[in-house]
Amino acid sequence: MNYPNFFGSEFLKEVGEISRFTARFFKEVTKPRQEWEEFINQCYWIGYKTLTLVSITAFIMGLVLTIQSRPTLVEFGAASLLPAMVSVSLVREITPVITSLICAGKIGSGIGAELGSMRVTEQIDAMEVSGTNPFKYLVVTRVLASTVMVPVLSSLAIAISLYGGYLGANIRGEVSWSLFWFQAYDSLSYGDFIPAMIKTIFFGFAIGIVGCYKGYTSQKGTEGVGRSATTAVIVASLMVFVIDLIAVQITDLLGLT
């Protein structure tokens, strides 16, 4: 493998192609007619079908974070700060990012494999011949659905992870329901929740765009379908971290951290 070429021209070419694909999305999304029925269908598959996995993961995150953090706080005589520390950590960073990574794995790979299969079996070409706009029907609806549903899933995951934190706090200690939630809410502000939700919108958009791009441009038969699904997960996960890094820098400059 020619590494300089792989990390040079091929990388820049990929960035350019994804940018052009994204520009086409914004062009198509403003054109009538909107495929609302397919959009609702994709919201169901992307949101509802991912809810169980996200819920279980969020609950475990809150439970484990609380259990692991408690001994250190007890050592320094700060056990009373446990609800506040757990809630801020989960709301600001841990839950939105982990939820988005789960969505990148499940949604990104699913979209990449689905559209890749349609591409190699010439179903997309058949839609173009029949007069249907495949980009509008397949890409726009999936990107919009992922953009909408990832923040929704993240909001639910935050609530579930905080409940897991409450149970974790009562495994070794004893914290009343009202005291835990009072301290958790008292430590949070809109500056914690709103930036976290805004960046999940960009997470969802990136996951949808990457998955659709990899699947829509898939080549080389069934081998290409597998490669599309795999690279969609890798690139989408990387985009989540890059967007999170940018979001953290912006919130820090705005004094929201």
Rank of each mutant, 00 (worst) to 15 (best):
Y3S: 10
Y3F: 13
P4G: 12
N5Q: 13
L12K: 13
E14C: 12
G16S: 10
R20D: 14
R20N: 14
F21I: 07
A23S: 13
F25Q: 02
E28T: 12
T30S: 14
Q34K: 15
F39R: 03
I40F: 11
I40A: 04
N41C: 06
Y44K: 01
W45K: 04
W45S: 03
I46T: 00
T50G: 01
L51F: 08
T52L: 13
T52I: 10
L53M: 12
L53D: 00
I56G: 07
I56Q: 02
T57C: 12
G62F: 08
V64R: 06
I67H: 03
Q68N: 14
S69I: 03
P71I: 06
L73Y: 10
L73R: 02
V74D: 08
A78E: 12
A78K: 12
A78H: 10
L81W: 12
P83L: 05
M85Q: 01
V88L: 14
V88Y: 09
S89I: 07
L90E: 07
V91C: 07
V91D: 00
I94Y: 10
T95E: 08
V97D: 01
V97N: 00
I98P: 01
I98T: 05
I98N: 00
I98L: 11
S100I: 04
L101C: 05
L101F: 04
K106F: 10
K106T: 08
G108D: 00
S109C: 05
I111E: 05
A113W: 01
A113D: 06
E114S: 15
M118R: 09
R119E: 08
T121Y: 09
Q123S: 08
G131M: 11
F135M: 13
F135A: 12
Y137C: 10
L138D: 08
V139K: 05
V139W: 03
V143R: 02
L144I: 07
A145G: 00
A145D: 00
S146E: 00
T147E: 00
T147L: 11
L153P: 02
S155Q: 13
S155R: 11
A157R: 00
A159F: 10
S161Y: 07
L162N: 02
Y163I: 12
G164I: 11
G165P: 06
Y166L: 14
L167E: 06
G168F: 06
N170F: 04
I171S: 02
R172C: 10
S176F: 09
S176C: 09
F180D: 04
W181G: 08
A184L: 11
D186S: 14
D186Q: 14
S187H: 07
S189F: 10
Y190C: 03
G191A: 11
D192K: 09
A196T: 06
M197L: 15
I198F: 15
T200W: 01
T200N: 04
F203L: 07
F203A: 04
G204Y: 00
A206I: 03
A206W: 01
A206G: 11
A206F: 06
C212L: 02
K214A: 08
S218K: 04
Q219A: 13
K220Q: 15
K220T: 14
G226C: 09
R227P: 02
T231Y: 10
I234N: 09
V235T: 05
S237C: 14
M239V: 09
V240P: 03
V240I: 13
F241Y: 12
I246D: 06
I250V: 15
I250G: 07
D252A: 15
D252P: 06
D252Y: 15
L253T: 13
G255L: 11
G255P: 09
L256E: 02
T257W: 14
